[in-house]
């Protein structure tokens, strides 16, 4: 009896010793790590971005790894801490990240991101307005019907679900969302905003236009119940941002190499991960409008 006990504890001790040698994974070679904000279809993030990782690895000739995160804040923090050197940010999170890492720059954006837009949607039974599926109102006075309703933004750090809609609400009503709407919530996700407005839990909300159009195309939203009230003017949104010190670490001209690899991405399977038609060059200056808007709303100092 005693003997087996001893044997057993011996096995455990061996396992522990073995584990101590194995667990700190040896990562000697420089690895390029990238991340992406969890803006939509969060559950597929890993699957979506691991194919991007292998594409980049092939193109760049260095190890590339994808680091999943679950909040916009964590993505920016990881970029700032140099845990990731490259990131697929939204407009606002990109501005925040670049302001914290001197020398970092936006290198590429999706074709659609040059003229991104947000939709204000409302429950048709609870908010009376005229809507047709073909013509989306572009006159900002359409927002008038939303005064005093309950309203849901998306995630707190989202450009299309929070920053731009809030900016236009402030601009049109000349007061903060809390005073314009009866109640302001943050659903945390574009698809959930749609679900909440459809159920009537919130009477209106603001969503990323791509998520809305995907939901309409898939039939996961009943357009008899929810419709678009207003479409914001376009603004620049998502972009790839890279740290300034990568050239030192991965060799001269690495930034250009990454930029080229991103711009040359043409396989539909890869582009579907974002989902974007193609990528076009981007520069920090493209995002000056976002900086100004974020300052005026008080989301950055």
């Amino acid at each position: 009896m005693k003997r087996t006990d001893k044997n057993q504890s011996f096995v455990w001790v061996m396992l522990v010793v073995l584990g101590c040698f194995l667990s700190p994974a040896s990562q000697a070679a420089e690895t390029l790590v990238f991340t992406a904000i969890p803006d939509q279809d969060e559950s597929r993030l890993r699957a979506r971005f691991s194919i991007i990782a292998s594409y980049l690895q092939e193109q760049l000739g260095v190890d590339v790894r994808y680091l999943p995160v679950k909040s916009y804040g964590a993505a920016v923090t990881a970029f700032k801490n140099d845990q990731v050197q490259l990131a697929w940010f939204g407009g606002l999170s990109g501005v925040r990240a670049r302001s914290r890492v001197p020398g970092s720059s936006a290198i590429a954006q999706g074709y659609e991101d040059q003229f991104f837009t947000s939709y204000f949607i409302a429950n048709r039974q609870q908010v009376s307005f005229t809507a047709s599926p073909d013509i989306i109102p572009t006159s900002i006075s359409s927002l008038d019907v939303l005064k005093g309703v309950t309203f849901s933004f998306g995630s707190k750090g989202s450009t299309s679900g929070r920053l731009m809609p809030e900016f236009y609400v402030r601009k049109h009503f000349s007061s903060a969302p809390n005073d314009v709407f009866r109640r302001v919530g943050f659903s945390g996700d574009h698809s959930r905003t749609i679900a909440l407005v459809e159920s009537g839990a919130f009477q209106a909300g603001a969503v990323n236009y791509k998520v809305w159009e995907k939901a309409v195309a898939q039939g996961s939203v009943d357009t008899e119940k929810v419709a678009v009230v207003w479409k914001t003017p376009t603004y620049p949104d998502y972009q790839w941002t890279i740290r300034g010190d990568v050239d030192q670490r991965f060799g001269k001209g690495f930034t250009e190499k990454v930029t080229d690899a991103l711009l040359e991405m043409s396989e539909p399977a890869l582009l579907k991960a974002f989902p974007r038609k193609s990528f076009v060059p981007a520069h920090n200056d493209d995002y000056v409008p976002i900086v100004n808007v974020a300052k005026s709303v008080g989301l950055i100092d």
Partner: peptide
């Protein structure tokens, strides 16, 4: 732990509920 990118059950559950993937 999902916040640090570890795909635990809670991580997937939170995402699935958020996005309305109810079967999952």
């Amino acid at each position: 732990l999902g916040f640090v990118g570890l795909p635990t059950l809670g991580y997937h559950l939170e995402s699935a509920v958020k996005e309305g993937h109810y079967s999952e």
